[in-house]
Design a protein around this nucleic acid. Structure first.
Lengths: 362, 362
DNA sequence: ATCGTTTACGTAATCGTTTACACGTTTAAG
DNA sequence: CTTAAACGTGTAAACGATTACGTAAACGAT
């Protein structure tokens, strides 16, 4: 039935009206007709699955070549129920933090012939849900998501998905009910490292500027600061804690506030590099010098950390590793390989530069 | 026929074995059965195309809601012959230059409900051809490509495509035969601006470090330098021209070479910021100061240009605008809107900062 | 009551692949 | 020489949506 109708539609060599574009639409049916075989044989020859004689395969391959055949990915997707794409949902394309992650992800995807769809969630829950909806519609086979709205609604939606999802949030699966994986860097540990670095230089008045304490990641990071202070027997003073938004301007505003005080902090720990740079800018504008007037530590270890003046001490979060690990985890799920752990924790490391060194200057 | 087979497959409420996952696969056929209508009616109700009674539409919408229906994008793609995705082929994800472009593109795509597939071509012709192949397989409806291998082979492959393509190369369509559009910033003009800025300060020995002169864009940029020098009656001396690779290290190497000479340049024009920063680093390492010992001008006006020390004078190329304009052009093609011009030229502007100002220092 | 038009819905084909199954032809084994 | 396994190929049914076309009811105008 199908063959009949299709065959009748095929433009015979002589039929095509002069001057008309040659009908470039070539399907396996066209190839089949040309070599005088059935479409299923063509499919087998091209895909390499199932039996196929050597000479026929050669003939078919040649014909496909000559006809400039390209398989239709939509048809393939529909039939195979696989898109060979994964979604990467990221809150903010502008933040350089994610570029390395993209890179890491891409390396793994390439090995498996997967493509990456970049989805920009703009720090909004609604957009994150849109990303999830895309998975429900089978736009991609899986998703890696950096979520800043790691709430009930989100988790439920993700758990309802058939497609595998890897989050980069720190999370302890509640009762093993959850169906997603996660790869994260222990930012708590990172901030603790950074704070202890300052403590270790004998500083006592250490300020902290972080993200919203309501958000999970914001809270974690703050705890790192608090525990480091506690551990050293130093007081955690509300005056020296700023709840900000991970932007340069946010850091700038926090520093301004501290600059107004009579008593100023000896060191400042920022929950990311952008805020650290904002802090440095505020001090610079006030005519003060870093690290002489205040030591600064950031986190993320962005490219710019080594380019600002003075060079910024920063906690390296291994973004690229997060990317590759996430992608590998996702691939394991997609290939049905066994996955030992739901969560993978990566450890940060401190990169010491001039912004935090009281004594030395280069 | 189709209905019969499909209907018989539907799991009736009571049939499903206890403990088994509820079959989550819901299609319009399932919805149709539930409300006692035909699939075509369901399709019409959900897509809003064609006639559909108000009460039935409501009933269908409610059923779809309850069944947690999500349309299968692959099926939609196959039937509608539209993927609602575009490919963005970019040579190098690590280069911050492209992030703003991504941003610009994304803004436009979002308005049209399109998704972006990010394709990393690694500065390789082979990968660029792979991107093109993806279009042939109808992975996306169109493509925006930043090509560094704008050669015969590429152009032919792109012209053979049915899908619209926007390039960001400067290009004069040969005889109006070409079938792609292009949006570009006049980098010739940009380098000319930068060079004239130095010339205007009375400098005479001005060096230039650019990309390969074999590449189109590398050649264009060089011409901007040459013409500015010529225009001021200054000699273009081979000793002060370096052919490099747009990386920081490349700039560093070029500067090292110049530093060995007895006679050193008064000013250096770099064809991008990364190389300019490399140049600055080399001078810094040699214990020299900028702009006192040499004035430096870059191009791209990256974020870091305003963060390095001293702040880098740079030619702003409006990356975000390239992105939005490219995406808009592509969308016009996809929607069949008339497009006045194949090419759109954007003009760069010079952002003067400290690295190039002999007199003033802030 | 009749006709024509509009509205609502169903039938079935279609998009371009893959693949279970059936059927014939070799080939190897007994 | 028979029989069974292995191989090669074709038939037709999927995958899940859209849509041209046909039919029937509802509606108003004559």
């Amino acid at each position: 039935m199908r063959k009949g109708t299709s065959a009748s539609v095929l433009p015979s060599e002589t039929e095509s009206p002069i001057g008309a574009q040659p009908s470039e639409k070539h399907t396996i049916y066209h190839i089949a007709e040309r070599v005088g075989m059935s479409p299923s044989t063509v499919s087998r020859a091209l895909s390499g699955r199932g039996y196929c004689g050597e000479k026929t395969r050669a003939k078919i391959l040649k014909a496909a070549q000559e006809m400039n055949y390209a398989p239709d990915s939509a048809a393939k997707m529909l039939k195979m129920r696989r898109t060979k794409k994964i979604l990467f949902a990221v809150p903010d394309i502008c933040n350089p933090f994610y570029f390395d992650m993209i890179n890491g992800i891409n390396q793994v995807l390439e090995e498996h012939g997967y493509l990456m769809i970049l989805f920009y969630t703009k720090h909004s829950l609604k957009e994150e849900l849109k990303a999830i909806q895309n998975l429900r519609e089978k736009v991609a086979d899986g998703m890696i998501m950096v979520s800043f709205h790691f709430c009930e609604e989100n988790i439920r939606a993700i758990n309802a998905l058939k497609a595998p999802v890897v989050l980069t949030n720190q999370y302890v699966s509640a009762g093993g009910q959850d169906r997603f994986d996660y790869v994260y860097v222990d930012t708590y540990e990172g901030i603790r490292l950074g704070t202890e670095h300052l403590v270790g230089q004998g500083m006592r008045r250490i300020a902290y500027v972080g993200g919203s304490l309501g958000e999970q990641t914001g809270h974690q990071r703050f705890c790192g600061y608090r525990d480091a202070m506690d551990g050293a027997g130093l007081p955690v003073d509300d005056r020296w804690i700023a709840e900000s938004d991970y932007t340069e301007r946010g850091g700038w505003l926090a520093a301004r506030k501290w600059l107004e005080n009579a008593e100023r902090p000896e060191g400042i720990v920022a929950a990311n590099d952008l805020m650290a740079i904002g802090v440095m800018k505020a001090y610079e504008e006030a005519g003060l010098r870093i690290p002489d007037d205040v030591a600064v530590v950031g986190m993320d270890n962005l490219d710019i950390a080594s380019r600002v003046y003075p060079k910024l001490t920063s906690v390296a979060l291994k973004q690229e590793d997060i990317g590759t690990q996430s992608a590998q985890l996702l691939m394991s799920r997609l290939l049905g390989r066994p996955v030992p752990n739901r969560g993978i924790k990566l450890l940060p490391s401190l990169v010491v530069r001039n912004s935090s060194l009281r004594a030395v200057r280069t």
